[in-house]
């Protein structure tokens, strides 16, 4: 295989559609999702619950639930089509090429094994030739890097002896130990309280300097993503509605959904009795997706053209794409 040109993104998701078989029928959870993560960049994916952002991440990891109905499109990591890999080859990609940090640190670590055992085991795939002693030493150093005090002692502890924030640091350390090209962080701060969330975000910012891979950072909060990410992808009900550099997206949002999302967050937490803003209406039914703009039902600017076919994600300015006929 020839090396892809340097300009090629590390991760390239093209036209990814994915559905699950459920008791109610087939849910079209992702529809024609296209996004790219350049090398060394942090890309944020933002959307509300049910927008398909976690499913997209699981698809990249090929860790999808067994009721998967159909997948089309392609997911290419550094020139390798992940969807075409045999299971064992995909397993070997995990950890050393692409690793993932999960939402809930309280359940992400195995409760009956020492942190040390788990941190050594995750490295075996990436570094099969290194001795246990070497892997142990790396694990202790990485715990120090992510801010666990007295790591040489704490590494002998079990997960339940750490707080939620500390556990998330441990999971992040495990991911970094594998030196993956792509690190996926699936809402790594959502399950934590606000002060711990700020600490973990600061940790990601600090890690940027020492980590030369790319990061796919999933969040339901534009605010979280804004400070951390170079580029932002906004997802809604299983599609990408807008993608741009973080600065462009915040200063000049083009999709009505992004604008509403920004307004919701600006209203957040000023504590002066103003009611929290929300977008009227609910997330659409993914069992019966209309051949129209998926946001039209909730969009304050919707008109006839929005109901005539699904709007394509098109470039509205250099590096700025939106899926809206008005953009």
């Amino acid at each position: 295989m020839t090396a892809p040109p340097l300009a090629a993104p590390l991760l390239d998701v093209q036209g990814l559609s994915l559905s699950f078989a459920t008791a109610r029928g087939v849910a079209r959870v992702l529809r024609d999702v296209t996004l790219a993560i350049p090398r060394g960049r942090i890309v944020g994916v933002v959307g509300e619950s049910g927008s398909g952002k976690s499913t997209m991440a699981s698809a990249v990891m090929r860790l999808l639930p067994p009721n998967l109905h159909a997948v089309t499109g392609s997911i290419t990591l550094d020139g390798t089509d992940l969807l075409a890999l045999p299971p064992d080859a995909m397993r070997r990609m995990r950890g050393r090429r692409v690793a993932m940090v999960f939402q809930d640190p309280m359940t992400a670590l195995n409760p009956v094994f020492r942190v040390e055992t788990q941190m050594v085991d995750v490295q075996r795939n990436a570094f099969p030739d290194r001795s246990r002693r070497e892997l142990h030493a790396r694990a202790v150093e990485m715990l120090r890097t992510v801010g666990i005090p007295a790591p040489e002692k704490r590494i002998r502890d079990y997960p339940h002896q750490f707080s939620g924030g500390m556990r998330q640091r441990i999971v992040i350390a495990m991911a970094l130990l594998c030196e993956p090209e792509l690190l996926i962080a699936d809402e790594p701060t959502t399950a934590l309280d606000v002060t711990i969330e700020a600490q973990i975000l600061r940790l990601f910012e600090d890690l940027r300097a020492g980590f030369d891979g790319s990061i796919l950072f999933i969040s339901h909060s534009l605010g979280v993503v804004s400070s951390l990410c170079d580029e932002v992808v906004v997802m809604y009900a299983g599609t990408v509605v807008e993608s741009a550099s973080a600065r462009d997206l915040f200063t000049n949002p083009r999709h009505p959904y992004t604008r509403l999302l920004l307004e919701c967050e600006i209203g957040e937490g000023d504590g002066r009795g103003e009611r929290l803003r929300s977008i009227p209406g609910g997330v659409p039914d993914l069992f019966d997706v209309p051949d129209a703009c998926i946001f039209a039902g909730r969009c304050p600017q919707a008109h006839d053209r929005c109901l005539q076919g699904v709007p394509a994600l098109r470039e509205v300015a250099p590096g700025h794409r939106a899926a809206c006929v008005l953009a």
């Binding site: 990891m61 397993r91 085991d121 995750v122 795939n125 991911a175 594998c178």
Partner: peptide, 12 residues
């Protein structure tokens, strides 16, 4: 979830 974590790190 912790089994999913183990899978996500490529543990056989």
């Amino acid at each position: 979830p912790y089994i999913r974590t183990a899978r996500a790190f490529g543990i056989p």
